[in-house]
């Protein structure tokens, strides 16, 4: 069993953009993995001219928002510049009782790494309005600062778009490893979201463990 891994292009975000960007990316991925009956829901981003799709599952939405809160929390406490969110899909396999645990085992078949480079907290005045979601409308006295920001914003928008296309392409190219639908319970395949920073020493270990876990024959095709 192969666990496909997709490293998404790193995005340079400011603090106030984290939530929208993460929502957009996570929901887009999950929409592609929600192979149950979905009633898609279009969401227009506030900060960017981008529309993404949610699969319209409230539980799923809640879970994502919780994780994003955690992530933002973590960014604030440990302002590591590089932050990573891993969204991994797994299948639950009941282990044979002969092993040392009876616990269900998570067999990961796909991992998405979202890489965010969060800009340090703004010290200069030009970004102090950045926490507001309406910073677009804030009239900044410094014209160049304003311009700079709109340039940056446009750059992020196109990068985000790139990431979304990266997701779409990945989904398109790798279809064989996706478990078959009859095994699906609920709207989406089970997933978990983990947060890590590049400075975490445990991070590498964590990944290594997960790698070991994956590798089993769920694929029918």
């Amino acid at each position: 069993m192969n666990c496909e891994v997709c490293q998404l292009k790193e995005l340079e975000v400011e603090h106030f953009e984290i939530r929208e960007v993460l929502r957009c990316i996570l929901h887009t991925i999950l929409f592609h993995r929600a192979l149950g009956l979905v009633r898609p829901k279009d969401i227009d981003l506030e900060l960017f001219e981008i529309t993404y799709v949610q699969c319209g599952d409230i539980e799923l939405e809640k879970k994502i928002d919780e994780k994003i809160d955690q992530f933002i929390d973590k960014v604030e406490k440990h302002p590591n510049k590089k932050n990573q969110i891993c969204l991994s899909f797994y299948e639950v396999k009941n282990k044979q009782a002969t092993w040392f645990t009876n616990k269900v085992e998570r067999l990961h078949w796909e991992q998405w790494y979202i890489n965010l480079n969060v800009a340090q907290h703004p010290k200069s005045p030009k970004t102090h309005s950045g926490k507001s979601h309406h910073s677009k409308a804030v009239v900044d006295p410094g014209e160049s600062a304003f311009e700079e920001r709109s340039v940056r914003r446009a750059a992020l928008e196109s990068s985000l778009r790139e990431v979304l296309f990266q997701i779409i392409k990945f989904v398109n190219e790798k279809k064989d490893h996706v478990p078959s639908i009859p095994n699906l319970e609920g709207v989406s395949f089970p997933f978990e979201i983990t947060i890590s920073s590049s400075s975490d020493s445990a991070f590498g270990m964590d990944m290594f463990k997960r790698m070991l876990q994956t590798g089993h024959p769920t694929m029918l095709s």
Binding site: F31, T51, V53, V171, I181
Partner: peptide, 17 residues
């Protein structure tokens, strides 16, 4: 069928991008 679903999902997202 599974692959068609996947393809249609990505079509759905792409159309909006």
């Amino acid at each position: 069928y599974k692959k068609s679903i996947l393809l249609l999902r990505s079509l759905y997202a792409t159309v909006r991008l």
